[in-house]
Design a protein around this nucleic acid. Sequence first.
DNA 1: ATGAAAGCGCTAACAC
DNA 2: GTGTTAGCGCTTTCAT
Lengths: 340, 340
Amino acid sequence: MKKKITMKEIARELDVSISTVSKALNNSSEISQDTIDKVQAFAKLYNYKPNNIALSLKNKKTKNIAVIIPEIVHHFFTMIISGIEHKANELGYNVIVCLSNESFAKEVINMETMANGSIDGFLLSLSKETLLKKDFHHLREVINQGMPLVMFDRISDEIYCDKVIIDDARASYNTVKHLVYSGCNRIALLTTPDYVSVGKLRTSGYINALMDEGIEIDEKLIVKIDKIEELEEKVKVLFDTQTFDAVFGVNELYAVVAMREAHNRGFKIPQQMSFVGFSDGILSKYAYPTLTTVVQHGYEMGQKAAKMLIDRLENEDDDGSYKTDVIKTSILQRESTKPI
Amino acid sequence: MKKKITMKEIARELDVSISTVSKALNNSSEISQDTIDKVQAFAKLYNYKPNNIALSLKNKKTKNIAVIIPEIVHHFFTMIISGIEHKANELGYNVIVCLSNESFAKEVINMETMANGSIDGFLLSLSKETLLKKDFHHLREVINQGMPLVMFDRISDEIYCDKVIIDDARASYNTVKHLVYSGCNRIALLTTPDYVSVGKLRTSGYINALMDEGIEIDEKLIVKIDKIEELEEKVKVLFDTQTFDAVFGVNELYAVVAMREAHNRGFKIPQQMSFVGFSDGILSKYAYPTLTTVVQHGYEMGQKAAKMLIDRLENEDDDGSYKTDVIKTSILQRESTKPI
DNA sequence: ATGAAAGCGCTAACAC
DNA sequence: GTGTTAGCGCTTTCAT
């Protein structure tokens, strides 16, 4: 069990001062080549590695960033984390993952525990509860302390900071148009309550597309699902009470569950009924039939967010202007919709 | 932008010494109630929070643990992370996530960068490449430094440390028996190459179950799939060249893809052909028909692993004995298999 | 070319 | 009851 060696010990062994060791290890021009060689050889021999914590304390930066997400068991979020991790590592940063579990309290605690020196900046996607309460004091606090914050996907307009989002409304608009052009005109929408920003935007895109196409909005075709537990029941009720020729789900799960129900009721897909979901995940890809979806490019979103944060960290010239990056989406046509 | 305040500043403002502030904040009995009140009030007013980095340096512990996993975009791994995160937070630790992307080099780098003081211990699931190379020097190194390591799921018997695993062989054995009892006797196996420890164990469980049931092993029914890209093709070949009445996949994806192929070829499921997968994920749950699977309890596994590591961290009495926890699995009967 | 000393923020043994 | 001091591991300014 050879414990980690410190500069102090190297200094003692080589009978030089600690500062000489420090400079030698950093190839300082102040030090003779002889000493440099000697110190570096010794350091390598004993596998010396500088202590990150000491460096953090000295430099006032940790090279760690925290990402706080509502949930990790979601394809979209895991793709985002992948992207963040990749980009952060590439730029020399480590990623600390915190889960809010959609809870406001947990989100606040996470931010508070991380804000005390453990990290250099935050990457955050708001929990549903925070979105509902509209209480953002914890975000304001870290921003006031001068700690950079980049929000992604589930953001708030009330907070002034860098952001990365999807063009949700447009994506939804395009999708509905796509369905219309493929011959559908009674399009059901499975969405979330309006307090979820992305759900609201997708709903508005749906409405605008139908209006632009001169199709009447039928409120009965808009189903708002809050908790996953009510999903199956609400879908059944929709099928029991309404007629329609397409279903657009604001996430892949909604769409797949609806598709299964259609299957069970004997509908031919996509001939009699079409399906589109949001966020191209594993479910869409392996559903039967495979599901046409809006591709959100989560990996790219994660990379962009990480880049934005690190740029901010490494550029002192903080001019006080924040930017919002919008990630383009695209429609991935598979078996659940008719070709246009 | 009110910067973080330090003890030094509190001391200056209140005209007492830094150590008095320290003690007052820690409610030391050495300090008069008066001073304690005064200091704490001031601290609260200015929202003083101790600097984690300074504490880490002083205490020689960071309250951070690193988890290194091959991939994050896998339901099983995300469940494990959830479990780890939950348990770690509960016990006062933060989780730093590192992805090896199944690469040996990345795994080594991850461990090296984290081992220099950033964390107190490791949670690790080996990358495929490491499993193939059987090069574990990086693990030995951190263990030698006295840093605790707990391996989970993809482990190596060559390394002496705490472990948490699934009873893979038994789970597989039970599953095959389950299929036999439900009336199947030509059971195809979709598995990974043997260097993936869990794949190997599952394959052996399959073989043992068949032997115990007096069913001949047909090597042609055992398909080893290394890369995801060859999955669909190999499944097609299986269907083209063999006859069978059940498919057992060592993960849910393999099973679902095979089930789709069966669907496309007009097989009635489960009447003509049964399907079982491993690891109860989102795919199994929403497949059509829903897929019977082996439940691996990833969340529980993550919790156990985190608990084990933290126990080790907080109990100095390291008696040099390591333990291996085996998580029980269970079969979740859904629509893709006949009831027994 | 080398070393002494201060300091990052905090704790704790020891002095007064 | 309060303050002084040393120290965690490292960097850096300022002597020498």
